[in-house]
């Protein structure tokens, strides 16, 4: 086998870019991969300066890098994770990936002439990492979605209890540390079992969805609605005292009581009972606020439902 002939064909046709430059960064070799991705012909770039051929390349940094290979006689590297590309080129998957330019891993290799111990050329190998780059992006997006799903209630799309409590703990600790106002509204749909029995469970689901939609519209940025369980919900109101919480709760209560929902050509009306507790520096845990808001909520129920009660110590 003529090893040299095989090697030169391999390097010419390998699915990575191969360039060779001399000490002045003049191009001595430019393989087929480089030709087809840069849309340049070897015949027109050989003998020209690398930075004239790739004017977008980070010149100072790249020159210093190539210099290190010559001076230290060591390889050097560049990774797409830190620098997406050095040589601005199209990649081979323009249809099925979203990125415009080829993500590249690059290796710079010192090359010595026969019998010499110091390099007089640098070989540059450009690997197309677009696939990895693309899947990494996808993975990031998926992880974000997963995080979103793991904190959301499937039916109503509001925060689930686990995430809501996690956030409540943080808000509670902030209120403790900085003596900020903080209020909690707990609310519950009145006679929800009867809605389910009379109109069916799908109607019950609809009422939950409509109720949370309405609440979300009324809430301010920074407030957080969560499904506490069944038909019970909680609203965290940072920087809000019980008076402000009461006004907000009243608005929700009255608007919801006026809302007529449609299911299977039947009109459904529902109401909610609400309880409010504001932060007190004597509380030690956020659960102390939940218990007290619940007590106020039960009082609203006892006194005839469809009303708002503030917890009084």
């Amino acid at each position: 086998m003529d090893v040299a002939a095989v090697q030169s064909q391999l390097i010419e046709r390998i699915n990575s870019g191969v360039l060779v430059v001399d000490q002045n960064c003049c191009l001595l070799y430019f393989n087929r991969f480089m030709e087809s991705h840069s849309l340049l012909q070897a015949s027109e770039v050989i003998g020209k300066n690398l930075f004239d051929i790739f004017p977008d390349a980070p010149q100072r940094w790249l020159q210093r890098k190539i210099q290190s290979v010559f001076m230290l006689n060591t390889p050097a590297f560049s990774s797409w994770e830190q620098r997406q590309f050095v040589f601005k080129m199209r990649h081979a998957r323009p249809v099925t990936t979203s990125s415009e330019y080829m993500a590249q891993n690059i290796t710079f290799i010192p090359i010595c002439s026969d019998g010499q111990s110091e390099p007089d050329k640098v070989g540059i190998i450009v690997e197309d990492m677009t696939d990895v780059f693309f899947y990494q992006q996808k993975l990031k997006d998926t992880l974000k979605e997963l995080e979103e799903v793991s904190r959301t209630d499937g039916l109503t799309k509001v925060s689930n209890r686990r995430y809501w409590e996690e956030r409540f703990r943080i808000e509670f600790e902030t209120a403790q540390r900085h003596e900020h106002d903080l209020s909690l509204i707990m609310f519950d749909l009145d006679k929800f079992k009867r809605i389910n029995d009379e109109y069916g469970h799908q109607a019950g689901d609809l009422v939950l969805v409509k109720a949370t939609e309405l609440v979300q519209q009324i809430l301010r940025k920074g407030d957080l609605l969560g499904r506490y369980g069944g038909e019970e919900f909680g609203i965290i109101l940072p920087n809000t005292a019980d008076k402000g919480a009461y006004e907000l709760a009243e608005r929700i209560r009255s608007q919801f009581s006026l809302l007529t929902m449609q299911h299977d050509n039947r009109s459904i009306n529902a109401t909610m009972s609400m309880g409010i507790c504001q932060f007190d520096s004597r509380f030690t845990r956020f659960e102390d606020m939940v218990t007290r808001a619940d007590l106020a909520l039960y009082q609203s129920k006892r006194e005839g439902r469809n009303q708002v009660t503030i917890y009084q110590a």
């Binding site: 100072r60 940094w61 790249l62 060591t74 390889p75 050097a76 830190q82």
Partner: peptide, 23 residues
């Protein structure tokens, strides 16, 4: 290492100098 002032990737600077020292 020839970085431009707006080239702020500290991670890349670390990998660059590490490779130089190691190799």
């Amino acid at each position: 290492l020839g970085y431009e002032p707006d080239d702020v990737s500290e991670v890349e600077q670390l990998t660059d100098i590490s490779s130089i020292l190691t190799t």
